[in-house]
């Protein structure tokens, strides 16, 4: 691989793109990075998955540094839902063997397709009307205000359906390892559709959360020697540059554009999972 500098150019470009899109959509970029590394560059899946986990953390911390400072990330909602994702990940590790198979792909293909439609329908809802949220959200103060430069005013919000969404993030934590998708494609729609948060708060808070869940598996990949320095190093650098660029763009981008982009990505994901379900 040392002889092909093209390999590194493609690697850096793909990583930059994954970081940029991941920062805007609240995803780790694994959806883009793993297929790009394996199909485009022919990287072995073990190295690709480890590099992708590192990229999830790079996107998360790189983007979250900016979003937390700008007040877009809701750290309370993030911490609250992390109880669901981390507990789900532990459950997934325990019962993983019992839940595999095509039925799981089929079920989640349908769920993700539904999310794609629901997010597309919500695309025009830029500002959420200031509502009271539910009792638990008020008790745990799962709300806030942020300034949206693209809209030119402050947006106030409070979470709805707090407990059902906590349940959803728990399920997302269980299945994400089994389906080979990160939590982002399930967490962002849950926060957008059910919690009725502004889309930028949903993606920024998802970004904040995904790094934590990925950290435990990243250390395990490191100990197994799957984090290839000459591969994961450039990936991390490219993803960080992309995530920082994406975080800068976030202010100017309309919520509508983020929702349309996200629902398009979900549609592709739903189709991929349907293909896996059908074998």
């Amino acid at each position: 691989m040392a002889e092909s500098w093209q390999f590194f150019v493609v690697l850096l470009t793909v990583s930059f793109g994954a970081g940029l899109l991941g920062a805007l959509l609240g995803l780790g970029g694994g959806v883009i990075l793993v297929p790009a590394l394996t199909l485009l560059l022919g990287v072995d899946i073990r190295y690709a998955i480890a590099a992708s986990i590192v990229s999830v953390i790079a996107t998360s911390s790189g983007a979250a540094a900016a979003y937390v400072r700008d007040g877009i990330t809701n750290m309370r909602i993030g911490m609250f839902l992390e109880t669901g994702t981390t507990a789900g990940a532990v459950t997934g590790a325990l019962v993983g063997g019992l839940l595999s198979g095509r039925a799981l792909y089929l079920i989640f293909s349908v769920i993700i397709a539904y999310c794609a439609c629901a997010m597309f329908q919500r695309r025009r809802q830029e500002a959420v009307a200031a509502t009271q949220g539910d009792a638990i959200a008020r008790r745990l103060r799962l709300g806030g205000t942020y300034h949206d430069p693209a809209l030119g005013h402050h947006v106030e919000y409070c979470a709805h359906n707090t407990l059902p969404v906590l349940g959803l993030t728990y399920v997302a934590g269980i299945v994400s390892g089994l389906l080979g998708i990160g939590g982002g494609p399930l967490k962002v729609p849950a926060m957008d559709i059910a919690m009725r948060l502004p889309i930028k708060v949903s993606t920024a808070t998802s970004n904040f959360m995904i790094g934590v869940t990925a950290a435990a598996s990243a250390i395990i990949y490191f100990m197994r020697g799957q984090i290839h320095p000459a591969l994961a190093g450039p990936v991390a650098a490219g993803v960080l540059a992309g995530a920082l660029t994406g975080a800068r763009l976030m202010g100017r981008v309309r919520g509508k554009a983020i929702r349309i982009l996200f629902s398009g990505l979900l549609a592709v994901l739903a189709a991929q999972m349907l293909l896996k379900a059908l074998g």
Partner: peptide, 23 residues
Amino acid sequence: PDALILLGLLLLIATPVLRVVVS
């Protein structure tokens, strides 16, 4: 060189965990 890259990546991995501790 390999160890320096891995040290950087380990620090990257530790950052979100440190964030939870600090919160």
